[in-house]
Design a protein around this nucleic acid. Structure first.
Length: 318
DNA sequence: GGAATAACCTGGATGC
DNA sequence: TGCATCCAGGTTATTC
């Protein structure tokens, strides 16, 4: 399930291959992969063909490739082109969300179709030559779209991988993630103080803090010794700070290990799985001993999801 | 307006 | 062996 570390691994793998590349064409094999795109497959293909990618950016679980006009031979036509990352030339981007099972893969030109392949971008890079960027998605919760860029509200860069203070419009409502230098700890604490919702629900709310999904919410709460159903506004400042620290530690560790892979649902751009599944301490360990106290990890149903925690270390609030 | 819930989707696992 | 059901969960529309 691609969460922040998995999406960041994909972004980092994609960036050197797509930055500066020109899109030669696109094949939309399944229009369901365009649920966030305004227009039909033909309009998507027309919107990306002939344009140049200037970076690979990410906020939370959203990934985008800012576009400028540009041809294979480097000649620029039509709209403004600032010739580099960031600046006034950025008006649109290909925005991607991997959903539950989406993958962005780099393949050689003419490579056989991937299982569940939905969209293929044909690109030409000045150094790497021609490549294919394949969007494959088993459960079709993910999507690509061409979207306009809008200025960030705080004037800071839109996300990791870009210096431009802009995000796609459909990402504008997504909060910054805890690894973003512009993330406001103060704002996060204030937001928690205003809601009595369960802390896990708040962690999963991408408008409060982005990039955290079910796996890393369980892992962070276990590490911070906080019960997932604790009311957010009942947490002390000290507890919130501890939680933020643990969220960052968990995300950084997962990132260093290449993300969490279950049944090859998530892979990097080369099709390789991450290793963090071996380091999980709560998620998916139902019945196994807690690594702190030895008591069994329990699993409960929580808002159509599963929550995994230690009932001894993470005491249920009164 | 904020909070909670259902729906979307596919394929592997499980039970009969 | 084959069929039916359950489960996984990110986002968003709908309902309360």
């Amino acid at each position: 399930m691609p969460e922040l570390p998995e999406v960041e691994v994909v972004r980092a793998g994609l960036a050197p291959a797509v930055t500066g590349a020109t899109i030669l064409g696109a094949d939309v094999l399944d229009s369901r992969a365009l649920t966030r795109h305004v227009g039909d497959p033909a309009s998507f293909e027309a919107a990306v063909t002939g344009r140049r990618v200037i970076s690979a950016a990410r906020r939370g679980k959203f990934l985008w490739l800012p576009l400028v006009e540009g041809r294979v031979d480097g000649r620029v036509d039509g709209r403004a082109d600032d010739g580099g990352a960031g600046g006034a030339g950025e008006e649109e981007a290909i925005v991607a969300h991997l959903g539950m099972s989406g993958q962005l893969l780099l393949r050689s030109p003419g490579a056989a179709a991937e299982r569940h392949e939905r969209i293929r971008l044909h690109i030409a890079h000045p150094d790497h030559g021609e490549l294919a960027v394949v969007f494959a998605d088993q459960r079709t919760f993910g999507s690509l779209a061409v979207d306009r860029l809008v200025a960030t509200g705080d004037g800071a860069p839109g996300g990791r991988g870009t210096d431009a203070a802009a995000t796609p419009s459909q990402v504008a409502h997504i909060a910054r993630d805890p690894l973003d230098p512009a993330f406001s700890d103060t704002g996060f604490r204030a937001r928690l103080a205003r809601t009595s919702s369960a802390i896990k629900r708040v962690l999963l709310d991408q408008t409060v803090v982005s990039g955290i999904g079910n796996i890393y919410a369980d892992e962070s709460l276990w590490a911070a010794r906080i019960h997932p159903e604790t009311a957010a506004d009942s947490l002390s400042t000290r507890a919130v700070n501890r939680l933020l620290d643990e969220v960052r530690i968990v995300l950084e560790r997962a990132l260093a290990e290449g993300g969490t892979s279950f049944d090859a649902q998530y892979v990097n751009v080369n099709g390789q799985a991450g290793y963090f599944a071996h380091s999980l301490r709560a998620y998916g360990r139902t019945g196994e001993p807690c690594l702190r106290c030895g008591r069994p990890i329990v699993r409960v149903s929580f808002t159509n999801r599963s929550s995994h925690y230690c009932a001894h270390c993470q005491r249920r609030p009164r």
